[in-house]
Simulated assay, not measured.
Amino acid sequence: MLSPFEQFLSALPTHVVLEALADKSSIIPLNLSLTNTALQTVDLSSSKALEAYIWSEMARQQAKVAVGGYLEHRGLYRRSTYFKPLDVDTERNIHLGLDVWTAVDTPVLAPLKGSIHSFNNNTNHGDYGPTLILKHKIEGFEFYTLYGHLSLASMSSWRVGEAVNQGQQIGSLGAAEVNGDYPPHLHFQIIRAIQDFKGDYPGVSNLKDIAFYKENCPNPNLLLDI
């Protein structure tokens, strides 16, 4: 059963966050979880190897975009010390956002009106790279949306407090060299309470904290409807 906030999100009229998402026939689901045995032959420590796998899946299914990741248990974070320690309860390997994988430099659009809350270049290995957070106040609800793995060029147009219109371009997808060492993609996440974070918010949880994050970061597809 959906909470009142989740019902509100699912009822909002939104703009696509990437133009390619308007054509749902060009989208495929992508499983990067520990249950995907095909990943056993992929060197997940290499962004190039992971990119080759993702792009081959899109080519095989004649797609332009691959989407997935909410609450996936992933093994690919083990390549980075940023996500350790490695034990069952505290290893951060549960993904809290929705990933949209497509070509580098693809424009990213605001799905809702809002304002720029904060931004930062999060440069840890495996982190977001350039990251933007928008603040929204709609129908009595206040919440935030996070856009991770953007380009360095995107940051030049951001100003804290500046209004953002629905459908406005807010950035573009970054290459592996700047986006935390991943194939080009958007990490999109909804955040109910931002706490004291600015330009950053956990995008991966451990088992110990997952109940909190599931409530504070509901399924982004309630909003995007991909």
Rank of each mutant, 00 (worst) to 15 (best):
S3V: 04
S3R: 04
P4G: 03
F8A: 05
P13F: 01
T14N: 09
H15D: 13
H15I: 02
H15Q: 14
V16G: 10
V16K: 11
L21Q: 02
L32V: 03
S33K: 01
S33D: 00
L34H: 00
A38K: 15
T41K: 15
L44F: 08
L44N: 05
E51M: 11
E51R: 12
A52W: 06
Y53L: 08
I54D: 07
W55F: 01
S56Q: 15
S56N: 14
Q62T: 13
V67K: 05
G69N: 08
Y70T: 05
L71P: 01
E72C: 08
E72L: 09
H73I: 14
S80P: 09
T81W: 00
Y82M: 12
L86W: 13
D87G: 10
D87M: 09
D89Y: 12
E91V: 11
R92F: 03
N93E: 13
I94M: 08
H95F: 09
L98R: 04
L98A: 07
L109K: 10
L109S: 06
A110K: 00
L112C: 09
K113Q: 13
K113I: 08
H117K: 12
N124K: 14
G126R: 01
Y128H: 04
G129P: 05
G129C: 07
T131K: 08
T131A: 12
T131E: 11
I133H: 01
L134C: 11
K135Q: 14
K137A: 13
K137N: 14
Y147H: 10
L150R: 05
S151R: 07
S151Y: 00
L152F: 02
L152P: 01
A153S: 13
R159V: 15
N165A: 14
N165G: 12
G167P: 02
I170F: 04
I170Q: 04
S172L: 11
L173H: 00
G174M: 05
V178E: 15
V178M: 10
Y182D: 04
P183I: 05
H185Q: 05
H185S: 03
H187V: 07
F188D: 06
I190E: 03
I190L: 03
R192M: 04
A193Q: 14
I194D: 04
D196F: 06
K198F: 07
G199Y: 03
D200T: 11
P202C: 01
G203C: 02
S205T: 10
S205G: 11
N206Y: 00
N206A: 07
A211N: 13
K214F: 03
K214N: 05
N219F: 04
P220D: 08
D225V: 08
I226R: 02
I226L: 07
